[in-house]
């Protein structure tokens, strides 16, 4: 019986926003491609161990990121990072091999989803719901922050001057999408 059943593949991965598109007033929204995400918690020892797995040192400055090809390590707190790998990878397995004595690596690939917000008006659109200063001086390319958009927690990551990745929990994504669309319409 088992052999008759089709195994699911990455193609079967359905994010909560799959298929949506939106654009208005020089701002577009689109769901980000599926990604691997790790919620990483670590002290000094754990950071050294994580560096070996990631091949890149974790950022230590608030709001900063460490980037390598498809990998983005987002500083969320003094001992907390969000690791996003946009290529399908075995990152969770690699961390699993490290064990749990030095750090906590938890697979949150599916907990979060992301919206790519892009366009000349992107700062104004995000500032409709996010109280942070998102001007280039205060939030330059490569900056990140866990913050709020309206009533939802989000993680902002500025990928380019006019492009942000907005990470949020999957069941909040419908709200975040609609909030951004509403904001873009009235920006």
């Amino acid at each position: 019986m088992a052999e008759q059943l089709r195994n699911l593949t990455i193609e079967d991965r359905k994010g909560p926003l799959t298929g949506r598109v939106f654009g208005a007033n020089g701002c577009t929204l689109k769901p980000a491609a599926p990604a691997i995400r790790i919620s990483l918690r670590a002290g000094a020892e754990g950071m050294a161990a994580a560096k070996k797995v990631l091949g890149i040192a974790l950022p230590v400055k608030p709001k900063s990121t460490a980037l390598k090809v498809d990998l983005a390590c987002l500083w969320l707190g003094p001992d907390e990072w969000l690791i996003i790998d946009s290529a399908d990878s075995v990152l969770p397995e690699k961390f699993a091999k490290l064990g749990n004595s030095l750090l906590s690596a938890v697979d949150v690939s599916h907990r979060n989803t992301a919206i790519i917000v892009e366009g000349a008006n992107v700062e104004a659109v995000l500032n409709s719901g996010c109280p942070q200063d998102l001007s280039l001086d205060a939030f330059h390319v490569g900056s990140c922050s866990r913050t709020i958009l309206g009533k939802s927690e989000v993680v902002l990551f500025r990928e380019a001057e006019n492009r942000f990745r907005v990470e949020c929990w999957r069941s909040f994504s419908d709200y975040v999408w609609k909030y951004l669309a509403d904001a873009a319409k009235s920006a």
Partner: peptide, 15 residues
Amino acid sequence: NHAKGDLFDVTRRTA
């Protein structure tokens, strides 16, 4: 402001 209709509050739905 934005918090009316669908945006009055977050409606969470499962997969």
